[in-house]
């Protein structure tokens, strides 16, 4: 009503830097990538925009296996991380006492070393003649002439390891925020401690589970380093294909199309997952 034009524009001014950031580093590259995906040509004559949508169906039919593998690997890693991170975050939030900061630091610590180094170290740990594989062979988890290196298992292991902190931190934040009196109330009202955990703690932790799962699944689905270092030619993920198309083959349209398909697939999977675990909005997870 009584607001001057200047006053009404004020919020826009505040949002300006963020908007500019989004336009320059997100919207523009996205639009550009879309246009690149619709170009055709080769590295000698160059690429021109020809609106050839067939690249999308070709990419999907040629690389369906790699897409499926990426989703399965990333999904498995997310699940493994959740299983490891929940007790860990629970411990840090409720049982660590004054050592809380120390344990959080321990979780983040591996990030001080480059991801390539950490992954390469795994390659040494799981080498065929090493202690780990020897032990697994002795207890029968790996067959006598079997291996861990260059298998799907190794890639999933690498992804789980590399992205674990992304699951622990949001889970910790959510668990710590839970009002402990609710659990007390549940036990007062006759719940066993396990039932209270199942019916009170877990549901209240869902935003954290959702946020952690996103933070692990999204980068994991596009990851290529783990498959590159710990995998074999038979465990190629879609990230490797995209990377190859851009750098080695210089097939920019296919690479751009694959990136777009990956992005869309991830968005759909997230939406379905969110529905399944009952998170209504992403912002709920972000608090």
């Amino acid at each position: 009503m009584g607001l001057s034009l200047r006053q009404r524009l004020l919020p826009l001014w505040f949002a300006g830097p963020a908007l500019l950031w989004l336009v320059v580093f997100f919207a523009a590259p996205l639009v550009n990538q879309l246009s690149v995906s619709l170009m055709s040509g080769n590295s000698e004559v160059g690429y021109d925009l020809t609106w050839s949508f067939s690249v999308y169906s070709d990419a999907l039919s040629s690389y369906g296996a790699e897409f499926a593998r990426s989703v399965v690997f990333a999904g498995a890693a997310t699940l493994i991380d959740l299983i490891i991170a929940f007790p860990l975050a629970y411990f840090i939030a409720y049982k660590a006492g004054r050592f809380q900061a120390f344990w959080l630091l321990m979780v983040v610590m591996p990030f001080f070393v480059s991801q390539v180094m950490r992954t390469a170290a795994w390659k040494l740990l799981i080498n065929d003649n090493g202690f780990l594989v020897g032990t697994l062979r002795d207890i029968g988890l790996v067959s006598a002439d079997g291996r861990l290196d260059a298998t799907s298992g190794a890639v999933i292991l690498g992804i789980s390891y590399n992205f674990l902190p992304f699951m622990v931190l949001p889970l910790f934040a959510t668990l710590q925020r839970i009002d402990r009196r609710l659990i007390e109330a549940a036990t007062d009202l006759g719940c066993s401690r396990f039932t209270a955990f199942r019916k009170v703690t877990v549901p209240l932790a869902i935003p954290g589970i959702f946020a952690g799962s996103l933070l692990v699944f999204i980068p994991a689905a596009g990851d290529f380093i783990n498959a590159r270092i710990l995998g074999s030619p038979n465990t190629t993920m879609i990230g490797n294909v995209i990377q190859n198309k851009f750098i080695t083959v210089l097939d920019y349209p296919t690479a751009a199309a694959l990136s777009f398909i990956l992005m869309t697939a991830i968005l759909i999977l997230i939406a379905v997952f969110g529905r399944l675990i009952g998170t209504k909005t992403l912002t709920e997870a972000a608090v």
Partner: peptide
Amino acid sequence: VLTACGIDGT
């Protein structure tokens, strides 16, 4: 390529 409509070849 944002600045040009296409990618130059060699």
